[in-house]
């Protein structure tokens, strides 16, 4: 698998670290109820199909939101986390 890094272009999978669904970007506020924190940290849609994920490109330090299909593994998009949303 290869992924596009906005800094470095298409690079091999071995250079990246994935931490899972992009849900980690939606951090609740400090005073959010425990349910919100539970959902944020643990509960996932876990789609079989198009998904948004968080990947880290180790050589350049960029965190990415990657759009990828979890069944076919096709990568359809990638943006730096800083530019996402």
């Amino acid at each position: 698998m290869r992924l596009p890094c906005p800094c470095c272009g298409w690079r091999d999978l071995r250079e990246f670290t994935c931490i899972g669904a992009a849900d980690y970007l939606e951090r609740p506020t400090a005073d959010a109820p425990p349910e919100a924190w539970d959902a944020y940290l643990h509960v996932r849609d876990n789609p079989a199909g198009p998904a948004r994920e968080l990947w880290y490109h180790d050589p350049c330090g960029t965190w990415l939101v990657v759009e990828r299909d979890t069944v076919m593994h096709a990568v359809t998009g990638s943006r730096a986390v800083e530019d996402a949303q």
Binding site: M1, C18, A51, V71
Partner: peptide, 10 residues
Amino acid sequence: FYPSYASRGN
């Protein structure tokens, strides 16, 4: 390490 439903890896 990446989410997947394909029964194959890389």
